[in-house]
Every structure is written in C-alpha cells, then in structure tokens.
C-alpha cells in the first residue's frame, strides 16, 4: 500500500514562497491565479497493514513527525499497490 501525503501551511500562516510564485505567475500574464500554496508531497510505502490500520498509523506519522501541526496541516490518500 502507498500513502500519498500532502503537507501544507495552515490557513493564515504566511507562505512567502507561495506568495512569490503567485506574483511570478501574475507577471507572466496568468491573471486568473488568485493564490499559490507551496507544500510537501511524501510517498510512504507500507507493508502488510490493512487499510483501517494504515489510516490510523499514517495519521499518527503525520501528527508525530511528518507535519508540524502548529503551522502545517496534512491530508493523505491510501493507494493499493497490488
């Protein structure tokens, strides 16, 4: 099983990289761009766990290590690799 994890800044936390890319896209003429958020994408390969177990354990991984929940939020999807 593969956990596809996205970690991004929480709403209201300043994202200077996102802001810079936003302005760059506007400068290139993409006026429709309203906002850009830059985050991290992680793929975590899992062995011999049920989907229910994986759901609990990946959430725990995110809370304990992969995201700093003071400033970041996370979301993930579990994909079967068989």
């Amino acid at each position: 099983m593969l956990a596809q994890i996205h970690v991004t800044f929480k709403e209201g936390v300043l994202d200077p990289q996102g802001k810079t890319v936003h302005h760059a896209l506007n400068d290139l003429g993409y006026d429709e761009v309203l906002d850009v958020h830059i985050g991290k994408y992680l793929e975590v390969k899992l062995d011999s766990v049920s989907e229910e177990e994986a759901e609990i354990r990946v959430r725990e991984m995110c809370e304990r290590l992969l995201a700093n929940t003071v400033i970041e939020s996370f979301r993930f999807k579990l994909v079967s690799t068989e």
Binding site: V13, L14, P16, Q17, T20, N68, V70, I71
Partner: peptide, 11 residues
C-alpha cells in the same frame, strides 16, 4: 517551547 520557526520572510 511553544510555537514554530518558519522560513525567513525574505526567503
């Protein structure tokens, strides 16, 4: 300690 440190606003 409470809080977090982020990338400098100047990048």
């Amino acid at each position: 300690l409470p809080g977090a440190l982020m990338q400098n606003h100047t990048r």
